[in-house]
């Protein structure tokens, strides 16, 4: 094969990949538009939304409990080690609490939900697709996006701020335990510094982020479920993609959201 042919084949391969990504983006946008459209169309199946909130919210509480408690405790310990050197260890409280409310609570809750619920969404919907259960819904005249995707997306969007709130409280508890009980920082000083520096807008920032992450995790999880092809192997691939893209999206969007919210809050 001559050099020209090799170059042409490389360019063709690259072109195919680019077109594939553009097509995928188009599919994803189309899917997002459909779910938005069907969110506002009756019938409103509130019981399905509650079922999803119980699955994503209630059943994630224990994992959030563990993650947040230890995150708060470890973060307090690390900050203490740094701050002690400049005699500023009384600032542990506000630093940990601000970090938790603005960043750690929404991002780590998002990662937990992306791993646990994004995978479940893709696996449930994907296995329904390969066993024709989605076709069965459509034949009955039920829109599968409205029945399967909308409750999961809204469920994630509403559950994640609640989980993030729990993360913040338990994380604060963990840091308080380490700061006050283990490292012997004066309790009044600890809480006083928090109230000096904390603003309601910081909590709001975290909750807004959590809601956006929930929405994105829901969209990505359900999209990969609906796009499963083949059998069990396809379901596995879809589940894997949902988790990977869910987590990446949380981290990337966090950067842009932080920049945006810093200007308006």
């Amino acid at each position: 094969m001559d050099v020209k042919a090799i170059a042409v084949s490389k360019v063709e391969g690259l072109g195919e990949k680019v077109l594939g990504y553009i097509n995928g983006l188009g599919d994803f946008t189309n899917f997002t538009m459909k779910t938005v459209f069907w969110t506002f169309k009756p019938p409103y199946r509130v019981h399905l939304l509650f079922d999803q909130m119980v699955f994503m919210g209630n059943k994630s509480v224990f994992i959030i409990f563990l993650t947040s408690g230890f995150t708060g405790a470890v973060f307090a310990m690390q900050i203490y080690l740094g701050m002690k050197a400049i005699n500023a260890d009384s600032f542990i409280g506000p630093i940990v609490t601000i970090a938790l409310s603005k960043e750690l609570a929404p991002v780590l809750s998002g990662l937990v939900v992306a791993g646990r619920c994004g995978a479940a969404m893709a696996a449930q919907i994907g296995s329904m697709k390969v066993t024709e259960q989605i076709d069965a819904l459509e034949v009955m005249g039920i829109n599968s996006y409205q029945y399967l995707a909308v409750p999961r997306i809204l469920g994630a969007m509403l559950s994640l701020p609640l989980l993030s709130g729990i993360f913040l409280l338990i994380g604060y508890g963990g840091s308080w335990l380490v700061g006050v009980k283990v490292l012997q920082i004066d309790e009044i000083l600890y809480t006083q510094k928090i109230s000096d520096f904390m603003r309601l807008g910081m909590v709001a920032e975290g909750l807004i982020k959590a809601a956006v992450f929930g929405y994105l995790i829901g969209i990505i999880g359900t999209y990969h479920g609906f796009n499963v092809t083949g059998g069990a192997e396809g379901v596995g691939k879809g589940t894997n993609m949902a988790v990977v893209w869910g987590m990446i999206t949380v981290l990337v969007v966090d950067f842009f959201l932080t920049s945006f919210l810093a200007k308006i809050l």
């Binding site: 024709e132 259960q133 034949v139 005249g141």
Partner: peptide, 17 residues
């Protein structure tokens, strides 16, 4: 709405699991 005129039995039944 119109699809309510149909009933369907799928190859592997497609029952909601």
């Amino acid at each position: 709405e119109f699809r309510r005129n149909f009933g369907m039995v799928f190859q592997y039944a497609a029952l909601f699991d």
